[in-house]
Design a binder for these strands. Structure first.
Lengths: 242, 242
DNA sequence: CGGTGGCTTGAAGCTATTCAAGACCTGTGG
DNA sequence: CCACAGGTCTTGAATAGCTTCAAGCCACCG
């Protein structure tokens, strides 16, 4: 340990000190020097549910870390049909590197807080420190795995299996500390019925019917339309097709 | 130009000299030195249609470049339902970095020739030369874009739109030199009807019916069940839902 | 030739959608 | 406090689209 390092270990920007992204997100790949540099040009925001973060075919000049809340990634056809192609939770990195414009649309599904930086700063750091690119690569590989898992759900599962799979996915992502062996859990749905329909390739009515079915079969309980209580994750899993 | 460089420029391994992957694939990121090192442990194979290249939940100890043919990436549910989650064409890189076992199944859809290397060799080179990791990252980002495009098709398009989208996608990938403004093209389908069904989340009968419909509507012609002639790519595109 | 695998076609059935109405929840203004 | 308006969500009935089940066709190969 040199003096120099000591100085810089103490020099972690205030902005970053309690930030989850520094531990588990992409910022974990940066040393204190770089963190200071990045923090200078970055800023925290909070946005309401429904706010568009990245517009389709819009030039993107900044990236961001999701600090809390849920962001939905959407694609739509010319006639208005929509499909949600991904959800991002803290501390995911938001933005498509190496492309001037994004083919997808990102929108806050819940209230969301973000830490955003100029595109150029990230791209410069990516060249300087391979560790950053490596982290982004890994996140991208995970997103690809998720997307492919979801293709199976979209292409081959029935409506009720889709709903069960969706609830399991949300349960696991809302609370990452959830013990995989846990039997029960509860959470607030981050999506409206319409969003769930767009995620599962169904209509809102079908989503509603399948949720009532799961409810009357005693697999889940629902309070205030949004809060879901799962008493037996096993039973839910058995209905997910897996 | 130093003498050293001259020597090595001339030293491109025979194996690689006419290889497309060296120009457009991941090997393009390697310098002649590295190419020589890699070529020592790599080998070309050719396999028949139907051969399994990577088994589900099987330890993977090698990666490969696809040199010709088409590889299908599949996932399946416990009850046997299958979904194709991606297709790989030359000069795609085959293999999932940073994971001991793959959650997907790769199978030759047509006769395929491959150039494969031990996993360890690639991972070592990835550490040495960031350019290699960068290329793999870019390919992964493209695969993610493709997967998300396909999620829209699976979730929101009708059977006939799915077929039109599929034919367009194949036309563009089989012949990468195809002028985007071209009006007509023709190709051999690399997949059987059953594969197409697994790719589109349909049954084989529905695939067959939709193909006959496209045929009787004069959008495509089909010879010998496999060869497809598209006279108006525009008409096909209009039926794809875009 | 008969057999096999891949493909097509038809008829019936079922699942999810569409269309329509009503319930519920929340916030606003009287 | 209640009434009411505007979402969001649920429920019902009818319909459409895809699947299922069942034959039959076609090309290829022994």
């Amino acid at each position: 340990m040199t003096v120099r390092q000591d100085v810089h270990s103490a020099g972690i920007p205030v902005l970053c000190q309690s930030c989850e992204a520094r531990h588990h997100g992409v910022c974990g790949a940066l040393d204190p020097d770089q963190l200071v540099g990045l923090a200078k040009t970055s800023s925290k925001h909070t946005v309401e549910a429904g706010v568009e973060l990245i517009g389709d075919a819009e030039a993107v000049d900044s990236y961001a870390n999701v600090l809390s809340g849920v962001v939905k990634l959407m694609k739509s056809l010319s006639d208005g049909r929509q499909q949600i192609v991904g959800l991002q939770f803290a501390p995911d990195f938001l933005g498509r590197p190496f492309k001037v414009e994004s083919a997808i649309n990102a929108e806050a599904a819940t209230a969301v807080s973000l830490c955003s930086f100029p595109k150029a700063a990230i791209e410069r750091m990516m060249k300087e420190s391979p560790g950053l690119e490596h982290r982004l690569f890994k996140q991208t590989l995970n997103e690809l795995d998720d997307a492919r898992d979801w293709m199976v759900t979209l292409g081959r599962k029935s409506a009720s299996e889709k709903l069960a799979s969706f609830l399991l996915m949300i349960a696991r992502n809302i609370d990452p500390t959830l013990d995989p062996a846990a039997q029960s859990t509860s959470f607030d749905l981050p999506l409206t019925r319409a969003d769930i329909a767009d995620f599962l390739g169904l209509t809102i009515e079908t989503v509603s019917r399948q949720l009532t079915r799961l409810r009357s079969d005693g697999v889940i309980r629902i309070e205030n339309n949004r809060h879901v209580i799962v008493d037996s994750l096993n039973r839910l899993q058995r209905r997910s097709g897996a």
